[in-house]
Design a binder for these strands. Structure first.
Length: 337
DNA sequence: AATTTCACG
DNA sequence: ACGTACGTGAAATTA
């Protein structure tokens, strides 16, 4: 439509129209927002509303996913046919879909138990950064605590904007972020993003040296590993192509963190299943979504199951800092969140 | 069959 | 000069 001078192209030379591209064009033409809204509705309808009812099992009257144990590079599970690890939650219309996931009958509730900030906790434990460890031991709001440190203010002086930036930085760090990436995500100048990253590593110096050591180990050994010694091989770590090498370096930083989190929840799943069996409970573990377990719980068993699940998840793979699990119940999956 | 887009952690 | 945050899977579109 000629609403931008240098339209972005995909690698096959077509016009790129992904969400990030379109969002930069919303002020150029009134149709752009309408396209974004249309896309969202189309996605939700085709992927969930239309597809899921087709997958109801004739015998059980329920839908059953398949969990794949040997697909991902990091040790996570993946879920197919249908994928129940990407059920919507972020938008209001998406949340309507999540409400459709309900307990087996009126005598049951759904119980959702999720690890709180698990990847940041693992990064604290792996890096042994004293300030990050200290924040978790004190039970602080980790994004606010990070904001206070990187912006040099007291906890009380942290504004919502400072916290938002620190939160994005925290997630970015786990992925091996660049100043460019952070600036894009926060819509701030690259210089400011670079300052935030510099401040982050000044305030959490052991995080910086831990990340450097991940890359160093990958170059020396050809792989990195998780807390439970799961390896990810990184054959591109010494590539002469800077782009290819950069991806491998970010993998070297991220894989031990994401993979150790997967180690932890897998151990928790085994031990929780055993504990429910040993106590002859009828409640069932029904879903895993990377840092969350969902149970179909007999109402009379709620308190006992809650205790067991918290205990088994929190003690599955002890770190040098507390592991916290948040638990909620509800009459549908959204309410249990 | 490959690519693009977008849903989740 | 160049590209630029990790891990997935499904549906629609393009080749």
């Amino acid at each position: 439509m000629k609403i931008t001078d240098k339209p972005k192209r995909t690698k096959t030379k077509q016009y790129a129209t992904g969400e990030e591209v379109l969002r930069k064009l919303v002020n150029k033409h009134e149709i752009v927002n309408k396209i974004l809204e249309y896309r969202q509705l189309k996605k939700l309808k085709s992927t969930y509303v239309d597809a899921l009812p087709e997958l109801i099992n004739m015998k059980t009257g329920r839908i059953h996913t398949s969990y794949n144990q040997a697909v991902t590079a990091t040790g996570r599970l993946s879920s197919t046919n249908p994928n129940l690890q990407n059920i919507p939650i972020r938008t209001e219309r998406g949340r309507e879909i999540r409400k459709a996931f309900v307990p087996r009958d009126e005598h049951h509730v759904l119980l959702a138990a999720d690890y709180s900030q698990i990847e940041l906790r693992i990064m604290a434990a792996l890096s042994q950064d004293e300030h990050l460890i200290d924040a978790f031991r004190k039970g602080l709001d980790i994004h606010a605590a990070t904001a206070a440190r990187i912006f040099g203010v007291s906890l009380e002086e942290v504004t919502s904007d400072m916290r938002r930036k620190a939160k994005t930085a925290n997630f970015g760090i786990i992925y091996g972020i660049s100043a460019f990436g952070l600036s894009e995500r926060l819509s701030i100048p690259r210089k400011e993003a670079a300052h935030i990253i510099n401040a982050y590593f000044e305030q959490y110096p052991a995080v910086k040296s831990y990340m450097d050591s991940c890359i160093h180990d990958a170059k020396a050994l050809g792989y990195v590993e998780t807390l439970k010694k799961r390896k990810r091989y990184l054959p591109d770590i010494n590539s002469k192509n800077a782009v290819v090498r950069g991806i491998a370096e970010r993998n070297a930083i991220n894989a031990p963190i994401q993979g150790s989190s997967a180690d932890m929840i897998k151990i928790a799943m085994i031990n929780t299943f055993k504990a429910l069996q040993e106590r002859k409970l009828q409640s069932k573990m029904i879903l895993q979504v990377h840092d969350e377990l969902v149970f179909d719980v007999l109402k009379t068993e709620v308190e006992e199951v809650k205790e067991i699940v918290r205990e088994e998840m929190e003690k599955a793979l002890p770190l040098s800092i507390p592991t916290i699990v948040d638990i909620k119940t509800g009459d549908n999956w959204l309410e249990a969140h």
